[in-house]
Write a protein that binds this DNA or RNA. Structure first.
Length: 480
RNA sequence: GCUCCCAUCGUCUAGCCCGGUCUAGGACAUCGCCUUUUCACGGCGGUAACAGGGGUUCGAAUCCCCUUGGGAGUACCA
């Protein structure tokens, strides 16, 4: 039997970081065992579900490189349709069968009655477990007659009064005591099915073998276990992955800042880095590696390396992971990506040699791709000197004026658009040997003269990338 | 309230299932030093954790119980 897993998002917003992580785990597992990854859209909440969100979420998934084998736009006739909103009749059909078998019953209870029941239960300090009076066969006949006459009613599942046990891949053995839940609604009085029920019907009918999802579903799983049993369906394996939490240890949500995947896309995070980080949040590499890519993980991914405790979503480490992936990446790849950036005007206008030299230099120093053109604009292009305390300090050294004078005299003789690394080294040699300036005054003096800054990348690489016209202007400003 | 889940450095985690090799390992962050200056990179090193209490055992981070703390669920939401 081949493995079939699914990711089942609700299209009620952008793809969430947590959702992406769950999708990733499913995807990785499918890849690891040669299974099928299904995308199912859980849009039973008509109020909040929007078709455009479905599209957006799929785009986000694509950005991650998460592709699915089956889904709304890639249907397998055996299992289609893949949107729950297109499966109402299926849910109803099985619900009626459950009623036939007395495993469920019609409930004509009104909202007011329900409310009263809940209040009463609360006042008696117990759970408002619903137990309808329609258990009685007479009531059943009566109910069926009313339904036939067109009366609206919900269908409630009759919860067996006994323990249920789940052997979860992450949590281990979980025992749900009897009476944990009362009879619960599976079909609303408007005829539409409810999550805990559709989910089971779909997983069953779609032959899902492994349900990998967030821990927030763990408590609800008892309801699903009951339905599987009533249906006579084979239970899939369950893996309830711990939740992502924010800095306040609460479940990660919008108020924790950037929790939508599209935000990271816009910020030009590397999808590979994002995957790397997300996978690592709750799952550990068997060799304790921190940096890895999807191709590597999908070969070795297993369900037994999940951490059972929640993981805090921490931008600092993500930043570092991103920087590591930038360093790993071929410069040719980076060039393509950088050129697509809005700040990359100057970068784009340069020749291939300049681009690759600049990329080699700056990719070592940034956490984000967008910092490459930003740094270039600042370090290479800016003509304006910013007179800060550090710079003033350097200028006050007694060796600095003669360094500047020398650099000025040299730069005047240059007629090429750029100087070479050899020329740069020659200047350094001269200042060191002939002017007798070495160590900190040497490097800081030359740096100040040519960049007007007290920090930046190695001079011998930086200066050959800087237009001579810019260098001249900087030196001229310092001469004044 | 009730039910379930969770508990190793500030953070992500290894180790836990199959007790001794753990004076608890790695990574991020942080601090210090080194590298022809600075930021960064790299290298080296430091600070830093088994929530508390009981058991079981010759021996417990590892097994059991309790407490505490955190999380989730408790809907005709998903």
């Amino acid at each position: 039997m081949t493995v079939r897993v699914r990711f089942a998002p609700s299209p009620t917003g952008y793809l969430h970081i947590g959702g992406a992580r769950t999708a990733l785990y499913n995807y990785l597992y499918a890849k690891a065992v040669g299974g099928t990854f299904v995308l199912r859209v859980e849009d039973t909440d008509l109020e909040r579900s929007k078709a455009e969100y479905e599209k957006l979420q799929i785009e986000d998934l694509k950005w991650f490189g998460i592709t699915y084998d089956e889904g709304p736009d890639k249907p397998n006739p055996k299992y289609a349709p893949y949107r729950q909103s297109e499966r109402w009749d299926i849910y109803m059909k099985y619900a009626k069968e459950l009623v036939e078998k007395d495993l469920a019953y019609y409930d004509f209870c009104t909202d007011e009655e329900l409310e009263a029941m809940k209040e009463k239960a609360a006042s008696e300090n117990r759970d408002p477990h619903y137990e309808g009076k329609w258990k009685n066969p007479e009531f059943k006949a009566e109910a069926l007659k009313k339904i036939a006459a067109g009366e609206k009613a919900a269908i409630r599942f009759r919860a067996p009064k006994r323990d249920f046990t789940l052997n979860d891949k992450v949590k281990g053995k979980v025992v749900y005591p009897a009476n944990m839940v009362g009879d619960f609604v599976i079909i609303r009085s408007n005829g539409l099915a409810v999550y805990n029920y559709c989910c089971v019907i779909d997983d069953w009918l779609m032959d899902i073998t492994h349900v990998i999802r967030g821990e927030d579903h763990l408590s609800n799983t008892v309801r699903q276990l009951m339905i599987y049993e009533a249906l006579g369906a084979k239970l899939p394996e369950f893996a309830h992955v711990s939740l992502l939490i924010g800095a306040d240890r609460q479940k990660l949500s919008k108020r924790h800042g950037a929790t939508s995947v599209n935000l990271y896309r816009e910020e030009n995070y590397l999808p590979e880095a994002m995957c790397n980080y997300l996978v690592q949040l709750g799952w550990s590499h068997p060799e304790e590696k921190d940096i890895f890519d999807k191709e590597e993980i999908q070969k070795i991914f297993t369900l037994d390396r999940f951490s059972p405790s929640p993981a805090m979503y921490d931008l600092e480490k993500l930043k570092w992971v991103n920087s590591q992936h930038i360093k790993k990446m071929a410069s040719s790849e980076i060039i393509k990506l950088v050129e697509a950036l809005p700040e990359a005007g100057y970068f784009k206008s340069q020749g291939p040699e300049w681009k690759s030299a600049a990329t080699e230099l700056f990719k070592q120093k940034v956490n984000f791709l967008s910092e490459i053109p930003k740094q270039i604009n600042e370090m290479v292009l800016s003509e304006e000197l910013e007179m800060n305390d550090q710079l003033k300090d350097i200028l006050s050294w007694e060796t600095t004026p003669k360094v500047i004078d020398y650099i000025d005299s040299q730069i005047q003789t240059i007629t090429t658009p750029f100087i070479t690394e050899a020329q740069m080294n020659g200047w350094m040699e001269h200042v060191k040997k002939e002017l007798g300036v070495k160590g900190k005054p040497l490097f800081m003096g030359v740096r100040a003269a040519l960049t007007g800054k007290d920090h930046g990348p190695d001079l011998k690489f930086l200066i050959p990338l800087t237009p001579v016209s810019v260098l001249k202007k900087r030196v001229a400003q310092l001469k004044k």
